[in-house]
Amino acid sequence: MPIQVSLDRALMQHLADLARLHVPTERQAVLRQRLECIVAAFSTLQDAEDGHVDAAKERQLELRDDLATPPLPLTTVLANAPQHAGGTFVVPRVIDA
């Protein structure tokens, strides 16, 4: 069964909103072309047999001991901050707060 994706303007806008990106109208065409390419590529493997992910073959998570190390100095924490005050990062006020 081929995968049906309606790559309409609403979907483009939804993806842009999710990703916090602004996609100008002229870029939407390029994005649609690429999405269609991937969708098409996947349509060719409808009959291809999937593999399955075998957890037993994956490596396992290694855990570290619970030792606290000295944190970064505050000046280092804030060194790359676009805006900071009183030791905190400052962003435009959250409206729904």
Binding site: Q83, A85, G87, T88, V91, R93, V94, A97
Partner: peptide, 13 residues
């Protein structure tokens, strides 16, 4: 933690 002030929202991590 966020603190909302007139200056803006303050971010403490």
């Amino acid at each position: 933690k966020l603190t909302h002030t007139d200056l803006g929202t303050l971010v403490d991590l």
